[in-house]
Amino acid sequence: MEIDALWYIELKNGNENGLNRFMKLYLKPLSFFAYNIVQSKELTEELVVDAFLKVWNYQEKFQSDQHAVRFLYQVTKNACLNAVEKNKHVPPFDYELDNLLIYDDTDIQQQIIYDEFLQQVEKELAKLSEQQRNIFRMSCMQGYSTQEICLLLETTPQVVFNAKSKSIKHLRNVLDKPNNWFGVILFSCYLGN
């Protein structure tokens, strides 16, 4: 995981540039993470903004850049779970922010890695044709069968097979670099190939 350490130093010193850099690095992956829980774009935006505000309010308590990132994800996860519970008309669970500062959740770290991997995949998918992108997403990310894709896109199984093969080949070529073992491992686990 590449991290620009300058954001952490600036954030810790109360410089808004640090917060801006931090937001630039984590806004998309955090939004993806939150959306997967709450399934609402508007609510996701609100919860993510609140999470960054909490990071700003607790900036002096962080012991490292990774500590700040874990805190950001944990605060977001808790807010998302509270929002989901609230929509079920159940009183939300009260989380103590000070306890989150020392909480180290491996699930959060795994989610961060997974979100960064998906960002890398999405970046590479943008280089493919629209048809290849759509078929890859439907097949590999959304779990549609070839037959379902054919019905939805009004195409043939051969077109689906070709588009999926080309997109997987492209992703493997990009992710299967000697200096990108991280991408290779995740890509193989992700596709199960």
Results as ranks from 00 to 15, higher is better:
35 Y>E: 13
168 I>V: 15
148 E>C: 00
151 L>R: 07
59 Q>M: 08
159 V>F: 02
193 N>C: 09
35 Y>D: 10
119 Q>N: 12
90 V>D: 04
152 L>A: 09
72 L>R: 02
61 K>L: 08
120 Q>C: 11
117 F>K: 04
48 V>D: 05
34 A>W: 03
120 Q>F: 14
167 S>P: 08
73 Y>S: 05
148 E>P: 01
166 K>C: 08
170 H>Q: 10
183 G>H: 02
70 R>H: 12
102 I>M: 08
185 I>T: 05
110 Q>R: 15
105 D>K: 06
187 F>H: 03
51 A>I: 00
143 G>V: 01
86 K>C: 06
134 N>F: 00
138 M>F: 09
121 V>P: 01
23 M>I: 09
16 E>W: 00
34 A>P: 07
85 E>C: 09
184 V>M: 06
95 Y>D: 03
177 K>P: 00
81 L>K: 07
26 Y>R: 02
67 H>T: 10
179 N>K: 11
187 F>E: 01
159 V>L: 06
47 L>V: 03
119 Q>S: 10
133 R>G: 07
27 L>R: 14
19 L>W: 03
120 Q>D: 14
35 Y>R: 10
108 I>Q: 04
64 S>P: 09
172 R>M: 13
49 V>T: 11
134 N>M: 05
103 Y>H: 15
62 F>D: 01
179 N>S: 15
6 L>N: 05
158 Q>Y: 11
156 T>Y: 13
134 N>T: 08
60 E>N: 02
160 V>P: 02
138 M>E: 00
65 D>Y: 12
68 A>W: 05
132 Q>E: 15
158 Q>N: 14
43 L>Q: 14
12 K>Q: 04
91 P>E: 15
50 D>Y: 10
179 N>V: 12
40 S>K: 10
114 Y>L: 12
187 F>G: 01
164 K>N: 14
85 E>Q: 15
70 R>E: 13
62 F>L: 01
191 L>G: 02
70 R>K: 14
9 I>K: 11
161 F>I: 07
33 F>R: 01
191 L>S: 06
113 I>C: 03
126 A>N: 12
131 Q>R: 09
36 N>S: 07
4 D>R: 06
13 N>S: 14
74 Q>A: 11
60 E>T: 07
89 H>I: 08
118 L>F: 01
158 Q>C: 06
127 K>F: 11
130 E>T: 10
113 I>V: 11
154 E>M: 07
1 M>F: 09
48 V>L: 07
113 I>A: 11
5 A>T: 08
5 A>I: 06
91 P>A: 13
76 T>D: 03
20 N>V: 13
111 Q>D: 12
133 R>P: 00
5 A>W: 05
178 P>M: 02
57 N>V: 00
83 A>K: 10
54 K>H: 06
23 M>W: 07
103 Y>W: 14
20 N>I: 13
107 D>I: 06
46 E>K: 12
175 L>G: 15
71 F>Q: 00
117 F>D: 02
41 K>R: 12
89 H>K: 13
49 V>C: 08
115 D>S: 15
120 Q>H: 14
42 E>C: 05
188 S>I: 05
141 M>A: 06
149 I>E: 04
120 Q>Y: 13
34 A>I: 12
